[in-house]
Write a protein that binds this DNA or RNA. Structure first.
Lengths: 231, 231
DNA sequence: CTGCCACAAACATCACACCTTTAGCAACAA
DNA sequence: TTGTTGCTAAAGGTGTGATGTTTGTGGCAG
Protein backbone atom coordinates (compact mmCIF):
# COMPACT_ATOMS: atom_id res chain seq x y z
CA UNK A 1 0.00 0.00 0.00
CA UNK A 2 2.45 2.64 -1.05
CA UNK A 3 1.37 4.21 -4.32
CA UNK A 4 -2.20 4.38 -3.08
CA UNK A 5 -1.63 7.40 -0.85
CA UNK A 6 -1.16 10.13 -3.36
CA UNK A 7 -3.84 8.85 -5.72
CA UNK A 8 -6.46 8.36 -3.07
CA UNK A 9 -5.90 11.70 -1.38
CA UNK A 10 -5.99 13.48 -4.72
CA UNK A 11 -9.10 11.65 -5.75
CA UNK A 12 -10.91 12.33 -2.51
CA UNK A 13 -9.99 15.99 -2.36
CA UNK A 14 -10.86 16.40 -6.02
CA UNK A 15 -14.27 14.81 -5.57
CA UNK A 16 -15.05 16.91 -2.52
CA UNK A 17 -14.25 20.09 -4.37
CA UNK A 18 -15.87 19.05 -7.65
CA UNK A 19 -18.96 17.89 -5.80
CA UNK A 20 -19.38 21.13 -3.90
CA UNK A 21 -18.67 19.77 -0.45
CA UNK A 22 -15.78 22.22 -0.31
CA UNK A 23 -17.27 25.28 -2.02
CA UNK A 24 -15.22 28.04 -3.63
CA UNK A 25 -13.67 30.27 -1.03
CA UNK A 26 -13.02 27.44 1.39
CA UNK A 27 -9.56 27.76 2.83
CA UNK A 28 -7.53 24.68 3.68
CA UNK A 29 -4.04 24.38 5.06
CA UNK A 30 -1.44 21.79 4.25
CA UNK A 31 -1.06 21.06 7.94
CA UNK A 32 -4.78 20.57 8.32
CA UNK A 33 -5.01 18.21 5.37
CA UNK A 34 -1.97 16.34 6.67
CA UNK A 35 -3.84 15.73 9.90
CA UNK A 36 -7.14 14.96 8.24
CA UNK A 37 -5.81 12.35 5.85
CA UNK A 38 -3.10 11.08 8.17
CA UNK A 39 -0.40 11.24 5.54
CA UNK A 40 2.80 13.18 5.18
CA UNK A 41 3.30 16.65 3.81
CA UNK A 42 4.82 15.16 0.69
CA UNK A 43 1.60 13.43 -0.30
CA UNK A 44 -0.59 16.41 0.52
CA UNK A 45 1.66 18.82 -1.31
CA UNK A 46 1.71 16.74 -4.46
CA UNK A 47 -2.06 16.37 -4.42
CA UNK A 48 -2.56 20.07 -3.91
CA UNK A 49 -0.14 20.82 -6.72
CA UNK A 50 -2.17 18.70 -9.09
CA UNK A 51 -5.42 20.37 -8.06
CA UNK A 52 -3.65 23.68 -8.49
CA UNK A 53 -2.66 22.68 -12.01
CA UNK A 54 -6.36 22.19 -12.74
CA UNK A 55 -6.94 25.63 -11.17
CA UNK A 56 -9.36 24.11 -8.69
CA UNK A 57 -7.37 25.61 -5.83
CA UNK A 58 -4.82 28.35 -5.41
CA UNK A 59 -2.22 28.28 -2.70
CA UNK A 60 -0.81 31.44 -1.22
CA UNK A 61 1.67 31.97 1.55
CA UNK A 62 0.34 33.10 4.84
CA UNK A 63 -3.17 32.27 3.64
CA UNK A 64 -3.40 28.63 2.74
CA UNK A 65 -5.02 26.67 -0.06
CA UNK A 66 -8.17 28.35 -1.31
CA UNK A 67 -10.83 26.66 -3.42
CA UNK A 68 -11.23 28.60 -6.67
CA UNK A 69 -14.58 29.59 -8.24
CA UNK A 70 -15.70 26.97 -10.71
CA UNK A 71 -15.66 29.22 -13.73
CA UNK A 72 -11.90 29.23 -13.45
CA UNK A 73 -11.46 25.46 -13.39
CA UNK A 74 -10.06 23.48 -16.27
CA UNK A 75 -13.45 21.91 -16.82
CA UNK A 76 -12.34 19.96 -19.88
CA UNK A 77 -9.95 17.88 -17.80
CA UNK A 78 -11.11 14.27 -18.11
CA UNK A 79 -10.46 13.57 -14.46
CA UNK A 80 -12.45 16.58 -13.36
CA UNK A 81 -15.25 15.57 -15.70
CA UNK A 82 -15.30 12.16 -14.07
CA UNK A 83 -15.40 13.69 -10.59
CA UNK A 84 -18.33 15.84 -11.61
CA UNK A 85 -20.12 12.94 -13.22
CA UNK A 86 -19.83 11.01 -9.98
CA UNK A 87 -20.91 13.91 -7.81
CA UNK A 88 -24.27 15.38 -6.86
CA UNK A 89 -23.81 17.66 -9.87
CA UNK A 90 -24.08 14.67 -12.21
CA UNK A 91 -27.27 15.84 -13.94
CA UNK A 92 -25.90 19.30 -14.72
CA UNK A 93 -22.63 17.81 -15.88
CA UNK A 94 -24.46 15.45 -18.21
CA UNK A 95 -26.28 18.32 -19.86
CA UNK A 96 -23.12 20.38 -20.20
CA UNK A 97 -21.21 17.43 -21.56
CA UNK A 98 -23.91 16.58 -24.06
CA UNK A 99 -23.95 20.17 -25.29
CA UNK A 100 -20.23 19.80 -25.79
CA UNK A 101 -20.81 16.57 -27.70
CA UNK A 102 -23.35 18.38 -29.84
CA UNK A 103 -20.60 20.78 -30.81
CA UNK A 104 -17.76 18.32 -31.20
CA UNK A 105 -19.11 15.03 -32.50
CA UNK A 106 -20.77 16.38 -35.66
CA UNK A 107 -17.62 18.33 -36.48
CA UNK A 108 -15.51 15.25 -35.88
CA UNK A 109 -17.85 13.16 -38.04
CA UNK A 110 -17.41 15.64 -40.86
CA UNK A 111 -13.63 15.45 -40.65
CA UNK A 112 -13.76 11.68 -40.35
CA UNK A 113 -15.85 11.43 -43.50
CA UNK A 114 -13.22 13.50 -45.28
CA UNK A 115 -9.99 12.19 -43.82
CA UNK A 116 -10.39 8.78 -42.24
CA UNK A 117 -8.25 5.90 -43.41
CA UNK A 118 -9.93 3.03 -45.23
CA UNK A 119 -9.38 0.82 -42.21
CA UNK A 120 -11.11 3.26 -39.91
CA UNK A 121 -14.05 3.62 -42.30
CA UNK A 122 -14.40 -0.13 -42.54
CA UNK A 123 -14.28 -0.49 -38.77
CA UNK A 124 -16.96 2.16 -38.31
CA UNK A 125 -19.14 0.43 -40.89
CA UNK A 126 -18.60 -2.89 -39.16
CA UNK A 127 -19.49 -1.51 -35.73
CA UNK A 128 -22.67 0.07 -37.07
CA UNK A 129 -23.62 -3.31 -38.53
CA UNK A 130 -23.00 -4.98 -35.18
CA UNK A 131 -25.17 -2.38 -33.43
CA UNK A 132 -27.96 -2.90 -35.94
CA UNK A 133 -27.73 -6.69 -35.67
CA UNK A 134 -27.84 -6.63 -31.86
CA UNK A 135 -30.48 -3.92 -31.69
CA UNK A 136 -32.82 -5.57 -34.17
CA UNK A 137 -32.65 -8.82 -32.24
CA UNK A 138 -33.58 -7.25 -28.91
CA UNK A 139 -30.09 -7.36 -27.44
CA UNK A 140 -29.70 -3.60 -27.00
CA UNK A 141 -29.11 -3.99 -23.28
CA UNK A 142 -26.23 -6.46 -23.45
CA UNK A 143 -22.58 -5.87 -22.59
CA UNK A 144 -21.82 -6.64 -26.19
CA UNK A 145 -24.02 -3.82 -27.44
CA UNK A 146 -22.48 -1.47 -24.87
CA UNK A 147 -18.98 -2.34 -26.02
CA UNK A 148 -19.89 -1.84 -29.68
CA UNK A 149 -21.60 1.47 -28.94
CA UNK A 150 -18.57 2.80 -27.10
CA UNK A 151 -16.24 1.49 -29.79
CA UNK A 152 -18.34 3.19 -32.46
CA UNK A 153 -18.06 6.61 -30.87
CA UNK A 154 -14.39 6.11 -30.01
CA UNK A 155 -13.64 5.14 -33.57
CA UNK A 156 -15.51 8.05 -35.03
CA UNK A 157 -13.67 10.52 -32.82
CA UNK A 158 -10.31 8.90 -33.22
CA UNK A 159 -10.43 8.77 -36.99
CA UNK A 160 -11.08 12.49 -37.36
CA UNK A 161 -7.38 13.19 -37.20
CA UNK A 162 -7.60 15.92 -34.61
CA UNK A 163 -6.43 14.97 -31.14
CA UNK A 164 -8.31 17.84 -29.54
CA UNK A 165 -11.59 16.58 -30.91
CA UNK A 166 -10.70 12.98 -30.03
CA UNK A 167 -10.06 14.10 -26.48
CA UNK A 168 -13.69 13.82 -25.46
CA UNK A 169 -13.71 10.09 -26.17
CA UNK A 170 -13.13 9.16 -22.56
CA UNK A 171 -15.93 11.21 -21.01
CA UNK A 172 -18.32 10.04 -23.71
CA UNK A 173 -17.46 6.42 -23.03
CA UNK A 174 -18.13 7.09 -19.36
CA UNK A 175 -21.51 8.57 -20.10
CA UNK A 176 -22.54 5.68 -22.34
CA UNK A 177 -21.30 3.19 -19.76
CA UNK A 178 -23.04 5.02 -16.94
CA UNK A 179 -26.32 5.00 -18.80
CA UNK A 180 -25.97 1.28 -19.37
CA UNK A 181 -25.11 0.48 -15.76
CA UNK A 182 -28.08 2.54 -14.63
CA UNK A 183 -30.24 0.13 -16.63
CA UNK A 184 -31.45 2.90 -18.91
CA UNK A 185 -30.58 1.17 -22.17
CA UNK A 186 -33.61 -0.60 -23.61
CA UNK A 187 -33.33 -4.07 -25.11
CA UNK A 188 -34.89 -2.59 -28.27
CA UNK A 189 -33.00 0.62 -29.00
CA UNK A 190 -35.07 3.56 -30.12
CA UNK A 191 -35.47 3.12 -33.83
CA UNK A 192 -34.32 6.64 -34.71
CA UNK A 193 -31.13 6.28 -32.71
CA UNK A 194 -30.10 3.08 -34.42
CA UNK A 195 -31.03 4.58 -37.77
CA UNK A 196 -28.83 7.60 -37.15
CA UNK A 197 -25.87 5.44 -36.20
CA UNK A 198 -26.24 3.33 -39.31
CA UNK A 199 -26.73 6.28 -41.63
CA UNK A 200 -23.85 8.20 -40.10
CA UNK A 201 -21.59 5.20 -40.63
CA UNK A 202 -22.77 4.84 -44.21
CA UNK A 203 -22.10 8.52 -44.85
CA UNK A 204 -18.61 8.22 -43.42
CA UNK A 205 -17.90 5.14 -45.49
CA UNK A 206 -18.89 6.93 -48.68
CA UNK A 207 -17.08 10.11 -47.69
CA UNK A 208 -20.21 12.21 -47.38
CA UNK A 209 -19.20 14.94 -44.94
CA UNK A 210 -22.56 16.72 -44.80
CA UNK A 211 -24.42 13.48 -44.23
CA UNK A 212 -22.06 12.29 -41.53
CA UNK A 213 -22.30 15.60 -39.75
CA UNK A 214 -26.07 15.81 -39.85
CA UNK A 215 -26.80 12.23 -38.83
CA UNK A 216 -24.44 12.49 -35.89
CA UNK A 217 -25.95 15.84 -34.98
CA UNK A 218 -29.41 14.33 -35.07
CA UNK A 219 -28.27 11.53 -32.81
CA UNK A 220 -26.65 13.80 -30.22
CA UNK A 221 -29.63 16.15 -30.32
CA UNK A 222 -31.91 13.30 -29.36
CA UNK A 223 -29.59 12.39 -26.48
CA UNK A 224 -29.57 16.02 -25.40
CA UNK A 225 -33.34 16.12 -25.30
CA UNK A 226 -33.37 13.00 -23.20
CA UNK A 227 -30.67 14.24 -20.83
CA UNK A 228 -32.38 17.59 -20.36
CA UNK A 229 -35.63 16.00 -19.20
CA UNK A 230 -33.76 13.98 -16.57
CA UNK A 231 -31.93 17.02 -15.12
CA UNK B 1 13.11 33.76 -5.76
CA UNK B 2 11.40 30.93 -4.00
CA UNK B 3 8.10 30.17 -5.68
CA UNK B 4 9.82 30.33 -9.04
CA UNK B 5 11.39 26.89 -8.78
CA UNK B 6 8.41 24.66 -9.18
CA UNK B 7 6.78 26.81 -11.83
CA UNK B 8 9.89 27.21 -13.93
CA UNK B 9 10.87 23.56 -13.82
CA UNK B 10 7.35 22.50 -14.69
CA UNK B 11 7.16 25.00 -17.48
CA UNK B 12 10.48 24.03 -18.95
CA UNK B 13 9.87 20.30 -18.76
CA UNK B 14 6.38 20.76 -20.16
CA UNK B 15 7.64 22.77 -23.09
CA UNK B 16 10.38 20.31 -23.87
CA UNK B 17 7.93 17.45 -23.96
CA UNK B 18 5.18 19.36 -25.76
CA UNK B 19 7.67 20.65 -28.29
CA UNK B 20 9.03 17.22 -29.08
CA UNK B 21 12.50 17.74 -27.68
CA UNK B 22 11.77 14.86 -25.33
CA UNK B 23 9.85 12.48 -27.59
CA UNK B 24 7.51 9.77 -26.35
CA UNK B 25 9.41 6.86 -24.92
CA UNK B 26 12.12 9.04 -23.44
CA UNK B 27 12.92 7.87 -19.94
CA UNK B 28 13.92 10.34 -17.28
CA UNK B 29 14.78 9.80 -13.64
CA UNK B 30 14.02 11.99 -10.70
CA UNK B 31 17.67 11.91 -9.73
CA UNK B 32 18.69 12.97 -13.23
CA UNK B 33 16.24 15.85 -13.34
CA UNK B 34 17.31 16.89 -9.86
CA UNK B 35 20.88 17.18 -11.15
CA UNK B 36 19.90 18.82 -14.41
CA UNK B 37 17.79 21.58 -12.89
CA UNK B 38 19.82 21.89 -9.72
CA UNK B 39 16.79 21.79 -7.46
CA UNK B 40 15.63 19.47 -4.76
CA UNK B 41 13.71 16.26 -5.15
CA UNK B 42 10.56 17.95 -3.85
CA UNK B 43 10.42 20.40 -6.71
CA UNK B 44 11.09 17.76 -9.34
CA UNK B 45 8.54 15.39 -7.87
CA UNK B 46 5.81 18.01 -7.80
CA UNK B 47 6.52 18.99 -11.39
CA UNK B 48 6.50 15.39 -12.53
CA UNK B 49 3.25 14.80 -10.70
CA UNK B 50 1.61 17.65 -12.55
CA UNK B 51 2.86 16.38 -15.90
CA UNK B 52 1.61 12.97 -14.88
CA UNK B 53 -1.81 14.46 -14.17
CA UNK B 54 -1.83 15.69 -17.77
CA UNK B 55 -0.77 12.15 -18.79
CA UNK B 56 2.27 13.55 -20.52
CA UNK B 57 4.49 11.22 -18.51
CA UNK B 58 4.04 8.06 -16.51
CA UNK B 59 6.27 7.16 -13.61
CA UNK B 60 7.02 3.60 -12.62
CA UNK B 61 9.26 2.20 -9.95
CA UNK B 62 12.49 0.74 -11.05
CA UNK B 63 11.98 2.30 -14.48
CA UNK B 64 11.71 6.04 -14.14
CA UNK B 65 9.55 8.71 -15.69
CA UNK B 66 8.57 7.86 -19.25
CA UNK B 67 7.22 10.35 -21.78
CA UNK B 68 3.80 9.15 -22.96
CA UNK B 69 2.67 9.05 -26.62
CA UNK B 70 0.88 12.26 -27.52
CA UNK B 71 -2.46 10.65 -28.31
CA UNK B 72 -2.79 9.95 -24.61
CA UNK B 73 -2.19 13.50 -23.45
CA UNK B 74 -4.89 15.76 -22.09
CA UNK B 75 -4.62 17.95 -25.15
CA UNK B 76 -7.45 20.25 -24.09
CA UNK B 77 -5.48 21.44 -21.08
CA UNK B 78 -4.98 25.18 -21.55
CA UNK B 79 -1.42 25.05 -20.30
CA UNK B 80 -0.54 22.25 -22.67
CA UNK B 81 -2.18 24.18 -25.52
CA UNK B 82 -0.02 27.16 -24.69
CA UNK B 83 3.12 25.04 -24.62
CA UNK B 84 2.25 23.64 -28.03
CA UNK B 85 1.45 27.08 -29.43
CA UNK B 86 4.87 28.26 -28.34
CA UNK B 87 6.69 25.21 -29.68
CA UNK B 88 7.89 24.17 -33.12
CA UNK B 89 4.51 22.46 -33.49
CA UNK B 90 2.78 25.84 -33.49
CA UNK B 91 1.41 25.58 -37.02
CA UNK B 92 -0.14 22.15 -36.45
CA UNK B 93 -1.54 23.27 -33.15
CA UNK B 94 -3.11 26.32 -34.77
CA UNK B 95 -4.91 24.16 -37.31
CA UNK B 96 -6.10 21.70 -34.67
CA UNK B 97 -7.24 24.50 -32.42
CA UNK B 98 -9.09 26.25 -35.20
CA UNK B 99 -10.87 23.02 -36.10
CA UNK B 100 -11.89 22.86 -32.46
CA UNK B 101 -13.12 26.45 -32.65
CA UNK B 102 -15.10 25.54 -35.74
CA UNK B 103 -16.88 22.94 -33.65
CA UNK B 104 -17.31 24.92 -30.46
CA UNK B 105 -17.81 28.57 -31.33
CA UNK B 106 -20.84 28.16 -33.59
CA UNK B 107 -22.46 25.90 -31.00
CA UNK B 108 -21.70 28.42 -28.28
CA UNK B 109 -23.08 31.24 -30.43
CA UNK B 110 -26.32 29.31 -30.84
CA UNK B 111 -26.66 28.84 -27.10
CA UNK B 112 -25.73 32.44 -26.46
CA UNK B 113 -28.43 33.63 -28.85
CA UNK B 114 -30.92 31.55 -26.90
CA UNK B 115 -29.80 31.99 -23.32
CA UNK B 116 -27.63 35.06 -22.87
CA UNK B 117 -28.63 37.73 -20.40
CA UNK B 118 -29.66 41.12 -21.72
CA UNK B 119 -26.44 42.59 -20.39
CA UNK B 120 -24.33 40.07 -22.24
CA UNK B 121 -26.25 40.66 -25.48
CA UNK B 122 -25.81 44.39 -25.14
CA UNK B 123 -22.10 44.00 -24.49
CA UNK B 124 -21.65 41.78 -27.53
CA UNK B 125 -23.52 44.31 -29.66
CA UNK B 126 -21.39 47.10 -28.28
CA UNK B 127 -18.13 45.25 -28.97
CA UNK B 128 -19.20 44.50 -32.54
CA UNK B 129 -19.90 48.21 -33.02
CA UNK B 130 -16.46 49.07 -31.66
CA UNK B 131 -14.85 46.59 -34.05
CA UNK B 132 -16.76 48.03 -36.99
CA UNK B 133 -15.89 51.58 -36.01
CA UNK B 134 -12.18 50.82 -35.65
CA UNK B 135 -12.08 48.59 -38.71
CA UNK B 136 -13.82 51.05 -40.99
CA UNK B 137 -11.43 53.78 -39.96
CA UNK B 138 -8.31 51.75 -40.72
CA UNK B 139 -7.42 51.02 -37.14
CA UNK B 140 -7.68 47.23 -37.39
CA UNK B 141 -4.08 46.79 -36.28
CA UNK B 142 -4.29 48.75 -33.03
CA UNK B 143 -4.11 47.43 -29.49
CA UNK B 144 -7.61 48.74 -29.05
CA UNK B 145 -8.95 46.61 -31.88
CA UNK B 146 -7.11 43.58 -30.49
CA UNK B 147 -8.64 44.08 -27.07
CA UNK B 148 -12.13 44.45 -28.52
CA UNK B 149 -11.69 41.38 -30.72
CA UNK B 150 -10.61 39.25 -27.78
CA UNK B 151 -13.38 40.66 -25.60
CA UNK B 152 -15.93 39.88 -28.31
CA UNK B 153 -14.99 36.22 -28.48
CA UNK B 154 -14.67 35.94 -24.71
CA UNK B 155 -18.07 37.42 -24.23
CA UNK B 156 -19.69 35.21 -26.80
CA UNK B 157 -18.25 32.09 -25.21
CA UNK B 158 -18.89 33.21 -21.67
CA UNK B 159 -22.52 34.05 -22.23
CA UNK B 160 -23.41 30.63 -23.63
CA UNK B 161 -23.95 29.31 -20.13
CA UNK B 162 -21.84 26.21 -20.55
CA UNK B 163 -18.49 26.28 -18.79
CA UNK B 164 -17.12 23.49 -20.97
CA UNK B 165 -17.72 25.53 -24.09
CA UNK B 166 -16.42 28.69 -22.42
CA UNK B 167 -13.25 26.81 -21.57
CA UNK B 168 -11.63 27.50 -24.92
CA UNK B 169 -11.69 31.24 -24.30
CA UNK B 170 -8.14 31.35 -23.11
CA UNK B 171 -6.52 29.53 -26.03
CA UNK B 172 -8.56 31.57 -28.48
CA UNK B 173 -7.43 34.79 -26.88
CA UNK B 174 -3.87 33.56 -27.19
CA UNK B 175 -4.29 32.82 -30.86
CA UNK B 176 -5.82 36.21 -31.59
CA UNK B 177 -3.10 37.90 -29.58
CA UNK B 178 -0.38 35.86 -31.28
CA UNK B 179 -1.68 36.79 -34.70
CA UNK B 180 -1.65 40.44 -33.71
CA UNK B 181 1.85 40.34 -32.28
CA UNK B 182 3.07 38.62 -35.42
CA UNK B 183 1.88 41.70 -37.32
CA UNK B 184 -0.61 39.66 -39.33
CA UNK B 185 -3.63 41.82 -38.57
CA UNK B 186 -4.24 44.31 -41.36
CA UNK B 187 -5.18 47.90 -40.60
CA UNK B 188 -8.25 47.36 -42.80
CA UNK B 189 -9.80 44.07 -41.64
CA UNK B 190 -11.04 41.79 -44.37
CA UNK B 191 -14.53 43.00 -45.14
CA UNK B 192 -16.14 39.57 -44.81
CA UNK B 193 -14.65 39.03 -41.36
CA UNK B 194 -15.93 42.29 -39.99
CA UNK B 195 -19.30 41.66 -41.60
CA UNK B 196 -19.55 38.25 -39.97
CA UNK B 197 -18.72 39.67 -36.55
CA UNK B 198 -21.35 42.37 -36.90
CA UNK B 199 -24.03 40.04 -38.24
CA UNK B 200 -23.31 37.42 -35.58
CA UNK B 201 -23.68 40.05 -32.90
CA UNK B 202 -26.92 41.28 -34.43
CA UNK B 203 -28.26 37.74 -34.55
CA UNK B 204 -27.37 37.18 -30.91
CA UNK B 205 -28.98 40.44 -29.88
CA UNK B 206 -32.23 39.51 -31.60
CA UNK B 207 -32.09 35.92 -30.31
CA UNK B 208 -31.64 34.36 -33.74
CA UNK B 209 -29.89 31.06 -32.97
CA UNK B 210 -29.51 29.89 -36.57
CA UNK B 211 -28.14 33.22 -37.68
CA UNK B 212 -25.68 33.45 -34.82
CA UNK B 213 -24.46 29.94 -35.47
CA UNK B 214 -23.98 30.38 -39.17
CA UNK B 215 -22.28 33.77 -39.07
CA UNK B 216 -19.85 32.57 -36.46
CA UNK B 217 -19.26 29.41 -38.47
CA UNK B 218 -18.55 31.45 -41.55
CA UNK B 219 -16.07 33.53 -39.61
CA UNK B 220 -14.20 30.58 -38.15
CA UNK B 221 -14.19 28.81 -41.51
CA UNK B 222 -12.43 31.76 -43.06
CA UNK B 223 -9.86 31.69 -40.25
CA UNK B 224 -9.40 27.98 -40.78
CA UNK B 225 -8.73 28.47 -44.48
CA UNK B 226 -6.16 31.10 -43.65
CA UNK B 227 -4.49 29.01 -40.95
CA UNK B 228 -4.30 25.96 -43.17
CA UNK B 229 -2.42 27.82 -45.88
CA UNK B 230 0.18 28.94 -43.36
CA UNK B 231 0.78 25.44 -41.97
C1' DC C 1 -6.95 58.59 11.28
C1' DT C 2 -2.85 57.27 8.71
C1' DG C 3 1.33 55.12 7.82
C1' DC C 4 5.23 52.39 9.10
C1' DC C 5 7.19 48.33 11.29
C1' DA C 6 7.71 44.02 13.48
C1' DC C 7 5.78 39.51 14.17
C1' DA C 8 4.03 35.25 13.11
C1' DA C 9 1.47 32.18 10.01
C1' DA C 10 1.67 29.31 6.12
C1' DC C 11 3.63 27.89 2.02
C1' DA C 12 8.34 26.76 -0.50
C1' DT C 13 12.44 24.39 -0.55
C1' DC C 14 16.06 21.38 0.91
C1' DA C 15 18.34 17.28 2.70
C1' DC C 16 18.16 12.81 4.36
C1' DA C 17 16.35 8.42 5.79
C1' DC C 18 13.79 4.51 4.99
C1' DC C 19 10.07 1.69 2.61
C1' DT C 20 8.16 -0.75 -1.44
C1' DT C 21 8.00 -2.38 -5.84
C1' DT C 22 9.99 -4.60 -9.70
C1' DA C 23 13.16 -5.18 -13.96
C1' DG C 24 16.80 -7.89 -14.85
C1' DC C 25 19.76 -11.51 -14.14
C1' DA C 26 21.56 -15.65 -12.50
C1' DA C 27 21.17 -20.10 -10.69
C1' DC C 28 18.78 -24.10 -11.06
C1' DA C 29 15.62 -27.59 -12.35
C1' DA C 30 12.89 -30.12 -16.05
C1' DT D 1 17.20 -25.89 -24.43
C1' DT D 2 13.76 -23.94 -21.83
C1' DG D 3 11.09 -22.59 -18.07
C1' DT D 4 10.99 -21.39 -13.14
C1' DT D 5 12.52 -19.52 -8.96
C1' DG D 6 14.74 -16.38 -6.23
C1' DC D 7 17.93 -12.58 -5.35
C1' DT D 8 19.43 -7.92 -5.86
C1' DA D 9 19.91 -3.40 -6.87
C1' DA D 10 17.61 0.53 -9.04
C1' DA D 11 14.14 3.87 -8.87
C1' DG D 12 10.11 5.81 -7.31
C1' DG D 13 7.01 6.56 -2.83
C1' DT D 14 6.62 8.29 1.77
C1' DG D 15 7.93 10.41 6.11
C1' DT D 16 10.36 14.15 8.82
C1' DG D 17 12.93 17.97 10.55
C1' DA D 18 15.00 22.25 9.47
C1' DT D 19 15.17 26.50 7.23
C1' DG D 20 13.93 30.17 3.78
C1' DT D 21 10.44 33.47 2.07
C1' DT D 22 6.41 35.92 1.53
C1' DT D 23 2.76 38.47 3.39
C1' DG D 24 -1.56 39.28 6.27
C1' DT D 25 -2.27 41.52 10.53
C1' DG D 26 -1.99 44.10 14.51
C1' DG D 27 0.40 47.46 17.21
C1' DC D 28 2.68 51.68 17.74
C1' DA D 29 4.01 56.23 16.67
C1' DG D 30 2.99 60.51 14.39
Amino acid sequence: MSQASHTSVLDDLGRRIAGGELPPGTVLTLAGLEQEYGVSRTVIRESVRVLESKTMVASKRRVGVTVTPMHRWHVLDPVLIRWRLESPARAQQLVALTELRLAVEPAAARLTAIRASEDARAEIGRLAAVLKELGDSGRGDTEEYLAADIAFHNCLLEACGNLMLSAIKEPIAQVIGGRHRAGLTPAEPVHASLHNHVEAAAAIVRGDADGAESYVRAYVESILGEVRTIG
